[in-house]
């Protein structure tokens, strides 16, 4: 009886506490079950699809034309791959969904970090390159302290104004 009571109390606390602690966060479902690993294994670099990381703040998501560069004719029998051509027929871009997000008040530039700061993609994005199906949440969830720790470690600015906008 006691054990059941204890279990119930824990359950109630857990659900209630969950509501209080965790912000609503929905899992990300991509329109196509994209396999990062297959692409990397075939010798593609991150920049093949996220082409702007070395020039701009936003790394960018692949345009349909980028996909069609290889997938205009089927390479596999995967129904997921077929979806690319279905989007092409409808003349629509693939509605990729954003996985990693920044708060609106932060300025973050990929060029600055990856090209000028020589930081590997994995440092922030984890092992997404090894994923075989689209993850529904980022492997690493960065907090401001993570940014600051890295900035301190590398001896670069910790001025609030350098990132906050």
């Amino acid at each position: 009886m006691n054990r059941i009571l204890l279990f119930t109390v824990i359950l109630v606390l857990a659900i209630g506490g969950g509501y209080l602690v965790a912000k609503p966060f929905s899992g990300v479902v991509q329109p196509i079950a994209f396999n990062h690993k297959v692409h990397i294994d075939n010798g593609l670099d991150c920049s093949a699809c996220h082409e702007r990381y070395s020039q701009a703040a936003v790394a960018g998501r692949p345009k349909l034309t980028t996909c069609l560069f290889c997938h205009e004719t089927p390479l596999t029998e995967s129904p997921e791959e077929e979806k690319i051509r279905q989007y092409a027929e409808r003349g629509e871009e693939i509605p990729w969904r954003r996985l990693t997000r920044l708060p609106a008040h932060v300025y973050f530039s990929h060029r600055r970090h990856v090209v000028l700061g020589q930081i590997a993609c994995q440092t922030c994005h984890g092992r997404i390159g090894q994923s075989t199906s689209p993850p529904s949440r980022p492997e690493i969830q960065l907090k401001m302290n993570d940014c600051l720790a890295c900035h301190r470690q590398r001896g670069v600015t910790t001025d609030c104004n350098a990132c906050h906008r």
């Binding site: 708060p103 008040h105 001025d159 609030c160 104004n161 906050h164």
Partner: peptide, 9 residues
């Protein structure tokens, strides 16, 4: 750099 910052969060 002498800028008076205002950090909203």
């Amino acid at each position: 750099e002498g800028l008076v910052a205002q950090i909203y969060p």
